[in-house]
C-alpha cells in the first residue's frame, strides 16, 4: 500500500460518510417534487369520485367515494373491450419482437458476415426514425393488405417499429457472453441453433426483461399508429377509447375523469408490482446505448 492510498483510507475513516443524511433544504426539495408528481393524480381521484350533488362547484379536497362514476364510465366507454384488445396486441407484439430480435441479435453478435453487417447498419440508422414518418404510406399499404382494423397489422407494425433498438440491445448483450459456452455445447454435438436455444437464450433474462418492459410499455400506450389503423369500436385500444370517450362526453367531467382513471390503472399497477424490473430494464437499456 503506498502513501497516497494510506492518506485516502485515513481520511475516509475520519470523515463520516456525509451521504446518509439530507440537509433540511434537500428534504424540502424532495417533498416539493414528490407533491408536484402526486397532486395531479390526487386531483384526478377527487374528480373521478365526485358525487353529482351540488355540481363541480361543491368539490372539496376530501374525496366523495361515489363509485357510480366509475361503473358508468366503464360501461359507456367500452373500456373492457379496449383492455382485452390492448392486451392481445401488446402480448402478440412482444412475443413476435422477442422471438425475432433475440434470433437476429444472436446471429449479428456471432457471425460477422456481410449480410449481418448490412442488416445491423440499416437497423441502426432506422433507430433514429420515429414511426410517424412512414405511417401514411403504411396506412395505404395496409388498406391493400386488408390490415385496417385487425390485430395482426398492429402487432406487426409495433414489433417492426421496436425492432432496431431491441436487436441492438440483444446484439450488445450477447457479445458480452463468452463464446466458449456455446462452443463446448457444439463440441458435444449440438447444432448452432440448439446452442443458441439451450445455452444462450436462457442467459438472456435481463435483456429480455428490458425489451419486454421498454417496448411493451410503448405498445400498450400506442396512440399515433392506433389512430390510423384501428378505426372501429371492436378493435380500439385503451388510449383510443379514452380519447374518443372524451370527445363524446366532453361535458361530464367526473365521468371523463373516471374513464381516464380506469385507463391508467393497468399500466400503473404493472409498474408498482414490477417496479424493480422497470428501473433495471430502463437502466440496462440506457447503459448499453
Amino acid at each position: 500500500m503506498n502513501e497516497h492510498q494510506m492518506t485516502s483510507d485515513a481520511r475516509m475513516n475520519r470523515v463520516p460518510h456525509g451521504s446518509d443524511t439530507l440537509h433540511w433544504y434537500s428534504r424540502l426539495m424532495v417533498l416539493i417534487v414528490s407533491l408536484t408528481a402526486a397532486v395531479p393524480f390526487y386531483l384526478l381521484i377527487l374528480l373521478a369520485f365526485k358525487h353529482p350533488e351540488g355540481g363541480l362547484q361543491s368539490i372539496s379536497i376530501i374525496p366523495d367515494f361515489h363509485l357510480a362514476n366509475l361503473t358508468e364510465a366503464w360501461v359507456k366507454s367500452d373500456l373492457g373491450r379496449a383492455l382485452v384488445n390492448t392486451t392481445i396486441m401488446t402480448a402478440g407484439g412482444i412475443l413476435l419482437l422477442v422471438l425475432l430480435a433475440s434470433m437476429a441479435g444472436y446471429s449479428i453478435a456471432r457471425v460477422r458476415s456481410r449480410l449481418n453487417r448490412t442488416i445491423f447498419a440499416l437497423l441502426l440508422i432506422c433507430m433514429m426514425i420515429p414511426g410517424i414518418i412512414n405511417t401514411v404510406p403504411l396506412y395505404t399499404l395496409l388498406i391493400r393488405l386488408r390490415g385496417i382494423n385487425t390485430y395482426w397489422s398492429m402487432i406487426c407494425v409495433m414489433a417492426a417499429n421496436a425492432l432496431p433498438f431491441s436487436v441492438f440491445l440483444y446484439a450488445s448483450f450477447i457479445r458480452a457472453i463468452p463464446r466458449s459456452l456455446e462452443e463446448s455445447a457444439i463440441m458435444d454435438g449440438c447444432s448452432f441453433f440448439e446452442a443458441f436455444w439451450k445455452i444462450t437464450f436462457p442467459l438472456m433474462g435481463p435483456v429480455t426483461a428490458s425489451v419486454v418492459i421498454l417496448q411493451g410499455l410503448g405498445m400498450w400506450n400506442n396512440y399515433a399508429q392506433a389512430v390510423f389503423f384501428l378505426q372501429d369500436r371492436a378493435h380500439r385500444n385503451i388510449p383510443l377509447a379514452v380519447s374518443l370517450f372524451f370527445q363524446q362526453y366532453g361535458a361530464n367531467w367526473p365521468l371523463m375523469a373516471a374513464a381516464a382513471l380506469i385507463g391508467l390503472v393497468p399500466a400503473v399497477t404493472m409498474f408498482l408490482l414490477f417496479q424493480r424490473y422497470f428501473v433495471e430494464g430502463i437502466t440496462a437499456g440506457a447503459i448499453k446505448g
Binding site: V111, N134, T135, F193, F196
Partner: peptide, 22 residues
Amino acid sequence: SWHRYMALPAFALFSLFFLLPL
C-alpha cells in the same frame, strides 16, 4: 449453419412494415 441467417426473419418483418413504406 443456418444460424448465419437467423437475422433474416427480423429483417423480413422490418422490410415489409418499415423499409418498404419508407
